[in-house]
Simulated scan of single mutants.
Amino acid sequence: MLSTLDPHGPGKLGGVDPYGDTLFNEQEAHVARQEVAALTEGCGDPQRKAALLDLGELLEACAATPGSYLWFMGD
C-alpha cells in the first residue's frame, strides 16, 4: 500500500524508503497515523487492511510517547 503513495506528496508515508531505513519521530508519526486512517478506509483487501491497522497502532504508540521514534527498516 505504501508503494502506491507519491514520495513527493504532502504526507509522510510516501517517503518511507522500501530499500533504505526511514525514521519517524513522534510528530511525524502523528501525521502518518492520520494517513493510515485514510488508507484503511479505502482498502478492500483484508490482509492489507490488517497490516495498515497494525501500522496505525505502532504509529499511535510512537505519537503518544514523547522522545520516541518509529524505525522502518528497508530491504
Rank of each mutant, 00 (worst) to 15 (best):
L52W: 00
L58W: 01
L52S: 04
T40N: 04
C43I: 06
R48E: 15
D54E: 15
P46K: 03
E60I: 00
L59D: 03
L59M: 06
A61T: 05
A63L: 10
A37K: 13
L55T: 03
L59K: 06
Q47P: 02
G42D: 09
L53K: 13
G67L: 10
G67H: 10
G67I: 04
G44D: 12
A38I: 03
E57D: 15
G42W: 00
T65V: 02
Y69F: 13
G42A: 14
E41F: 01
C43H: 01
L59E: 04
T65L: 09
L58I: 04
T65A: 10
G42L: 11
A51C: 04
L58F: 08
L39A: 07
P66H: 09
D45T: 03
T40L: 14
C43A: 10
L55M: 13
L52T: 03
L39C: 10
A63R: 11
G56W: 02
G42R: 14
A37E: 15
C62L: 01
Q47M: 09
P66D: 06
A63H: 06
L39R: 06
Q47S: 11
E35C: 11
A64W: 00
V36G: 08
L55Y: 00
K49A: 14
A63N: 08
A61D: 08
G56L: 05
Y69Q: 12
A61E: 10
L55I: 07
V36L: 05
A37M: 12
E41N: 05
A61W: 02
C62Y: 01
L58E: 03
D45H: 06
